[in-house]
Design a protein around this nucleic acid. Structure first.
Length: 561
RNA sequence: GCGCCCUUAGCUCAGUAGGAUAGAGCAACAGUUUCCUAAACUGUAGGUCGGAGGUUCGAAUCCUCUAGGGCGCGCCA
């Protein structure tokens, strides 16, 4: 727990003590959880509580009178407050002693990149499944958003003390893979100068043409005279491998890596699909009708029951997916997070029904919806790529916009709202671009530290020798330290709410506070070495925190710009 | 028709599990550099939080109704 958190906890404690001392309640159980908030207005103090209002009904007294009682019985010394005020309908505003603030600088210097780590997750094993695009084509805008949000969420959860596993579910078993192999087959014959029509739902991407050419280059026409079955089996495996290579390459370049790539096909080969069907039947969750096997998902609130085995004996998409989710739990994950595109939100109730039918809690699976992305350029909506005439791909976006800007732009908005992605803004290397604004703050600090070092001023992070943090007491310095102190809370909050965009907002705020400080105070001051050292320490701790917060978002922190 | 999501400043969005006078960025306007990176800073202006009811000390936030937009409602994946 950081100093800031300790101070807050202590304050909460003392508020409870004051309530008891004032005799406002008959037992401690009656006291609601103490809420401490940071007021937006500086005149409202460092912290405020609404406790008096919350107690109004319990104590049967006017809020302001209760506030009076609390204030009169508060041990200000132990609570580290210098001044208390009652304001508005009954808020109690606390003005804190400032000396605790500077301790955060020492903490950051000592903890380095570990600063901000919390134990909120308590090592709970949590699995995040994201992207999971079909291995039949290229990753597009929406996938990129899902990848950015998912990866960032994983980073945040890890920082907040969860044990996170990142997983990609490969849909390598359904019709789309048959189509993939047939599409390659068609392109293969075309590459040999023969006509072979594409299947009805074939994939027309350039990558498929490329695969076919590779096959011809390597193996010649040897598949021409094989049986269709043999031929398709090879194309299927070949195509799948190449598609997966491409997916891993693209995602890797986007700084997104997975711990596990889980094959849908493996669910069949290991018999897990059959197992889960048997289990559902045993639990009485299925029935037969019209020649098909149904899952009675309405028992768990779904709109209608769902088919598991079609009348032709094949499975619906849902069936292996249920098996997959059961396997996730079987592997020991206590909670599952699925990041799905908005077009799949109707799928949530049946999946939740399924895990409940298997005996798990509905809230052990949490689905994060990624809303649609609209690209804008020159104020107009861009639907198609200029180069290919098709939907804009993730790789084009990375190349055109840059990885840092792309990741930041996807991370800075709430994932479940429509996103207007402004290409001009994302590409502009100027003042308007929030990514560069934050990165610039980092580079600026690095520049100061370099110059200080050239002049012989350095800080010893290990011993903190010669460091007098009491010298940090100007308004801008206090603002910075307060913001630094909020970092662990910002991490926990983003993890709790599964909201990566909060991290982007936090680091932007921190950068803003830094820039404001920079313009108000001079760090390197030859006439006051002690102050210079103290401020350098502050700068280093801000730098560390910006770099770490950016890393959670998947953005680099440059030393020069 | 039914279900889910969205609607906050001219534009893009925040809004800390119901709190004080709803905040940023961009765009607009007015300023700041003999000084560590002006990719920066400071200030001004901009709002009946889509609308109407309700719940309560208190609502952008919760409930109901309603208007507009998006998505979904297969023995597709």
């Amino acid at each position: 727990m950081s100093q800031v958190e300790q101070v807050k906890e202590q304050l909460k404690q003392e508020i409870v003590e004051a309530i008891k001392k004032a005799g406002l309640v008959t037992s401690e159980q009656e006291i609601p959880a103490v809420v401490i908030e940071s007021p937006k207005e500086k005149e409202h103090g460092d912290y405020a509580t609404n406790m008096a209002m919350q107690l109004a009904r319990i104590a049967r007294k006017a809020p302001r009178a209760i506030a009076d009682d609390i204030v009169n019985n508060l041990n200000k010394e132990k609570a580290s407050v210098t001044k208390v005020e009652i304001a508005g309908p009954g808020f109690i505003n606390f003005f804190m002693k400032k000396d605790y603030l500077s301790e955060v600088v020492a903490t950051v210097l000592q903890q380095g990149a570990n600063y901000g780590s919390t134990n909120y997750g308590q090592g709970k094993r949590i699995q995040v499944e994201f992207v999971s695009a079909n291995p039949t084509g290229t990753l597009h805008l929406g996938h990129a958003r899902g990848a950015a949000v998912g990866d960032s969420l994983c980073n945040i959860l890890e920082k907040a003390g969860f044990e996170v596993a990142r997983e990609y579910y490969i849909n390598d078993a359904g019709n789309q893979i048959d189509n993939l192999s047939k599409s390659i087959e068609s392109r293969y014959f075309q590459a040999l100068g023969e006509d072979k029509p594409m299947p009805e739902d074939g994939y027309h991407g350039k990558d498929i043409i490329g695969f076919a050419k590779e096959i011809v280059d390597t193996y010649g026409d040897r598949f021409k005279n094989q049986t269709e079955e043999e031929r398709l089996a090879f194309f299927r495996e070949y195509g799948l491998k190449r598609e997966l290579d491409k997916l891993q390459g693209d995602l890797g370049d986007f700084r997104v890596r997975f711990d596990n790539w889980y094959s849908e096909t493996s669910l069949y080969t290991t018999g897990k699909v059959k197992e889960v069907l048997a289990e559902l039947a045993e639990r009485g969750e299925t029935y037969e009708q019209d020649g098909a096997l149904w899952f009675r998902s309405t028992t768990y609130g779904d709109d209608k029951d769902r088919v598991l085995v079609k009348s032709d004996g094949s499975y619906t998409y849902l069936t292996p997916d249920i098996s997959y989710h059961k396997d996730k739990f079987a592997r020991g994950f206590e909670e599952l997070i699925n990041i799905w595109g908005a077009d799949h939100h109707g799928y949530i109730p049946r999946m939740k029904a399924a895990i409940q039918a298997l005996g798990y809690g509905a809230d052990q699976m949490n689905v994060q919806i990624i809303q649609m992305v609209n690209l804008f350029e020159n104020g107009e909506k861009v639907k198609m790529s200029k180069r290919t005439g098709k939907a804009v791909t993730m790789r084009e976006l990375m190349e055109e916009v840059g990885i840092d800007a792309t990741r930041y732009f996807f991370a800075m908005r709430a994932a479940d709202t429509h996103l207007d992605f402004d290409l001009d803004l994302a590409k502009s290397q100027s003042t308007e671009n929030p990514v560069y604004y934050v990165q610039y703050a980092h580079a600026r600090i690095c520049s100061m530290l370099r110059q200080a070092s050239d002049n012989g001023y350095t800080i010893d992070k290990a011993s903190l020798d010669g460091l007098n943090l009491d010298r940090l007491n100007s308004e801008k310095e206090l603002d910075l330290m307060k913001k630094l102190g909020e970092y662990p809370e910002a991490v926990t909050d983003a993890a709790k709410k599964r909201a990566p965009h909060r991290m982007a907002n936090y680091v932007y705020d921190l950068a803003q506070t830094l820039h404001s400080f920079y313009n108000a105070e001079k760090v390197i001051n030859v006439d006051d070495v002690e102050l210079t050292i103290a401020r350098l320490a502050l700068m280093e701790s801000v730098r560390t925190t910006i770099a770490d917060a950016l890393s959670l978002v998947g953005v680099h922190a440059p030393e020069k710009m």
